[in-house]
């Protein structure tokens, strides 16, 4: 290998660590699978729970979200322990705080919308707000696929909101509601799970190659 090739290889390695990967960020992608399951359960439980009573619905939603945060916390702690990291890294804390703030706002806003029986708007609200979280994740983890999911979700929520409002379907309980629920499951459960599986595969092959 010529000296120039060697220098180019060094630059590429340094760039890889400093720019592409930016920094060391341990993350357990199983947390994504947990959130996907919670998203599906919430999609089906939300309306019956809110119809029982807004307080009951809010309790169900809050409890499921709390379960998600607790499981994510445990998984993060576990992965951090394997690297001798106490508590969590600054980036992990950033992601967690981001999602906690989004969830708090979404829970309160959902309760208000449930009082007006505007269930479709609740789904659109969650789809939109969680996507903002995905934008943050894509930046922190440097995984472009999360940015694409966020774009898909934001555009879907804008399209569904506009369509529903234009045709007076926002209080519908028919096909339009099912379409909205389908998009929510796709955008907040199926696509993130596929990306997480892909990332886990990459991590496995990286480890096997010793990268």
């Amino acid at each position: 290998m010529s000296e120039k090739d060697e220098v180019l290889r060094q630059i590429s390695e340094i760039k890889h660590h400093l720019v592409d990967k930016e920094s060391f960020f341990p993350y357990n992608y199983n947390a994504c699978h947990v959130w996907s399951v919670i998203a599906v359960v919430l999609t089906f439980l939300m309306i019956p729970s809110y119809e029982n009573s807004v307080t009951f619905g809010t309790t169900v939603v809050t409890s499921l979200v709390l379960i998600g945060f607790v499981i994510e916390g445990v998984l993060t702690k576990k992965v951090n322990e394997s690297y001798d990291i106490d508590d969590c890294t600054r980036r992990q804390a950033f992601i967690m705080k981001n999602f906690i703030m989004i969830s708090l706002f979404a829970i309160v806003f959902s309760a208000i919308l449930a009082m007006m029986k505007l269930y479709i708007l609740i789904f659109i609200l969650w789809l939109f707000l969680i996507s903002l979280g995905y934008f943050a994740i894509s930046f922190v983890l440097n995984v472009k696929a999360y940015e694409k999911i966020a774009m898909f979700n934001v555009l879907s929520s804008v399209a569904l909101l506009s369509y529903g409002a234009y045709f007076g379907l926002l209080e519908s309980r028919g096909t339009f509601l099912s379409v909205v629920q389908g998009v929510v499951i796709l955008g907040l459960a199926v696509l993130p799970t596929l990306v997480a599986l892909q990332q886990q595969k990459i991590e496995k092959s990286d480890k096997a190659c010793g990268v």
């Binding site: 340094i14 660590h17 400093l18 990967k21 930016e22 920094s23 060391f24």
Partner: peptide, 8 residues
């Protein structure tokens, strides 16, 4: 690589 990681 080690120093790159520490700098980041």
């Amino acid at each position: 690589k080690l120093l790159s990681l520490l700098i980041a």
